[in-house]
Each structure stands twice: as C-alpha cells, then as structure tokens.
Amino acid sequence: MSSAIISSAGVISRSRLSGDYDYHAISATRQQVLSEWNQRRNYLRGSASDWLPTIRSALSAIRDHCGKPDWDGHGEIVVSDEVITNADKIVTTLFTLAQAGTPAPDIVPEADGEICLTWTQDDAQTFSISIGEQGKINFAGQFGHRGSIHGWKPTDTSSPNALESSLQEIAEYLENLYPPVARRRAA
C-alpha cells in the first residue's frame, strides 16, 4: 500500500516509536483501505501469531481428507468445497480483525460436514465457531468470571466489506478472550 493512499485516506495515531499504529480511515473508500491496512498490519507482525498460512494449509488437508462420505469411518458427511471456501473467507477476515497476538485457532472437521475453529486461553476461557454451508456461524464461548455466550450469526460472504461487517461481533468475542496488551517501550 503506498504512503499516498494512507495519507489521503486517513490518519495514523499513537507514537511511531512504539510500532503500534491505529489507522482511522476517512475517505470514500474507507472499508477497502481499512481492510487492506489490517491485512498488511497483521502480516507485518513478524511473530508466531501469523497463523493465516497455517490455517489455510489445514483447510487444504481437510479438503483432501474429508471430501468424501464416511471420511473417518463413522458415517461422516462430506466437508464440501463450499464449506471450505466459506471457512477460508471467514478465517481471512477474522485474521485481519483479530488483535495482534491472537493465537491460531484449533481447526477440526466435524461429522456434520462443518468446520470448527476453537481458540482456548485455559480451561475456563474458550471460544468456538462452527462454519457450514448455510451462511451462518454457530458460536459458543466461556470467558471465565465474565460469563458465557452462545448463539448463531448470519454471515454475508458477498463481498469482503459485507463479511467484515458480519464478523465484527465474533471479533469482539475473540478480544474478550485475548484482550489487547499494553506495550511498554524499552528504556
């Protein structure tokens, strides 16, 4: 992304010395620029939390292993290409929305043909989403002494902006599990 796009589309706040920037888009192409900024910001983290390629590899393995009926010998339903495509779009969007330092989720194909992503902080703090063909996400979370949540949420995968809007609430639940950490500058 060129600096011309950044300077004409928004402002960067916080000290550049800390390396932690908040980008606030203000142009007509706000959503597109913000989405690109979030993706690039996450790839610039340069840490073990850059988990998107790992999850995409796992989705490919699920496609190979679970693309036929009875894939584990217990009557499982096929994990369809549509489910894999939906999961990839959702994972990509959640990666851009998640706070820096959010670890990779566990990814598991389910017997009903859906894909489950689970983030676990400890025994009392976990959050899972289940992605299928129906255009919705089923979710459940336990957040220790802060309570629990469960439900479903429709997703709109028609465009990146629509999907990002659909997943804002899910990203907030992830932030409950992995709140932003204040960074201190070295002396």
Rank of each mutant, 00 (worst) to 15 (best):
Q99L: 05
A100S: 10
L34W: 11
F127W: 08
D123T: 14
S57N: 15
E82S: 13
W152Q: 13
T102D: 12
F95S: 07
R184K: 02
T120H: 04
L117M: 15
K89S: 03
H74P: 08
F143I: 05
Q31A: 11
R56N: 13
S7L: 06
I77M: 15
E36F: 07
S15Y: 13
S166K: 11
A61M: 06
G113D: 08
S47V: 07
G67H: 12
M1W: 13
W37Y: 13
P160A: 05
A100P: 00
Q32A: 09
T120I: 00
R41E: 04
T85K: 12
Q168P: 00
L17T: 07
C66L: 06
G151V: 03
R41M: 07
K136Y: 07
N38F: 06
G10L: 06
A61V: 05
I107F: 01
I137Q: 02
I115A: 00
D123K: 13
R183H: 04
T29D: 14
I12P: 00
L174V: 02
I55M: 02
N176E: 14
N86G: 00
D122L: 12
P180V: 01
S18V: 02
E110T: 09
L94P: 01
S130N: 07
T157A: 10
A28E: 12
L117A: 10
Q134A: 11
A186Y: 00
D22Y: 01
I129D: 05
V11W: 02
Y23H: 03
D22T: 14
I62F: 06
W71Y: 15
V78Q: 04
D72N: 11
G144Y: 03
T155D: 08
T85M: 04
A58C: 09
P53T: 11
S148N: 11
D88A: 11
E172M: 08
A87Y: 12
A124R: 14
I55Y: 00
T126A: 04
I129A: 07
